[in-house]
């Protein structure tokens, strides 16, 4: 067991230190992606013509290999965590923008009409009606983005010591110690599962208003479409 948790000295870190670093490098980009995606998605909903080019751009950015990003970024941000996190933030957009656009669009028109008719201004309507109802679909998108980000952090080893748990893969190679690789893969997977569970829990806590269990299939509520989008996205998260 001690052997399993042993971290080679060249990483200059402990096991728990690597985990914290890994989570930080994975989650900050998703948060940054969310902060960018929310207004971007709202613009795409507001101006329909904007959505196809935005979607196209995020897909093209996603297709750029991280190594290419690193080569460009090292000139500005050096061999730092930031250099790893910037491409990861960009990658998260490909999942988050469409997820949020779908989420906001899935709010039933009659709910929006009711809000307008009751005297909600556009900003208040967005914050108090659209966004809360969109939460389940947004979190479904966050789950995909987070899982992908946690696995992608490992590429940080390409620029030296920034791959967190991913650097163990490199060390397994140079020291010929497969146990490092096993540790890296298992820990990364466990982290992804735990973070995913935390997101599911967050959704459950944030949405006491959602039909649960068998009730969902049987009942016809105005939220049908929003509910339907969630399992579909969750399916793709697995």
């Amino acid at each position: 067991m001690n052997d399993f948790l042993h971290i080679p000295s060249d990483l200059q870190n402990t096991y728990s230190g690597l985990i914290v670093l890994h989570l930080r490098e994975a989650l900050i980009p998703v948060l940054a992606g969310l902060v960018v995606s929310l207004p971007l998605a709202q613009l795409c909903v507001r101006f329909r013509w904007l959505y196809p080019p935005v979607l196209w751009s995020t897909t093209v950015l996603y297709a750029i290999p991280s190594l290419a990003f690193f080569v460009v970024l090292i000139d500005y941000t050096g061999m730092s965590e930031t250099t790893v996190m910037i491409p990861l933030s960009v990658y998260s957009l490909v999942v988050l923008v469409p997820a949020i656009v779908d989420a906001v669009r899935s709010v039933p028109q009659e709910t929006l009409d009711a809000a307008t008719a009751m005297g909600f201004g556009p900003v208040r309507r967005y914050l108090q009606v659209q966004l809360p109802i969109a939460v389940p679909t947004i979190i479904a998108g966050l789950r995909v983005a987070t899982a992908s980000s946690i696995s992608l952090v490992s590429v940080g080893m390409l620029i030296g010591n920034q791959g967190a748990l991913g650097n163990l893969l490199h060390d397994a190679n140079i020291y010929n110690r497969p146990v490092y690789a096993v540790n890296s893969v298992v820990t990364t997977a466990v982290l992804a599962i735990l973070v995913d569970a935390a997101l599911v829990l967050t959704r459950v806590l944030l949405t006491p208003w959602m039909p649960r269990g068998t009730g969902r299939a049987g009942r016809k509520t105005s939220g049908d479409r929003a509910d339907a989008a969630v399992p579909a996205l969750e399916e793709s998260a697995r």
């Binding site: 039933p108 009659e110 009711a114 109802i133 939460v135 105005s222």
Partner: peptide
């Protein structure tokens, strides 16, 4: 129609 209630 359908009340348009705030489901949340």
């Amino acid at each position: 129609q359908n009340a348009g209630l705030f489901q949340h």
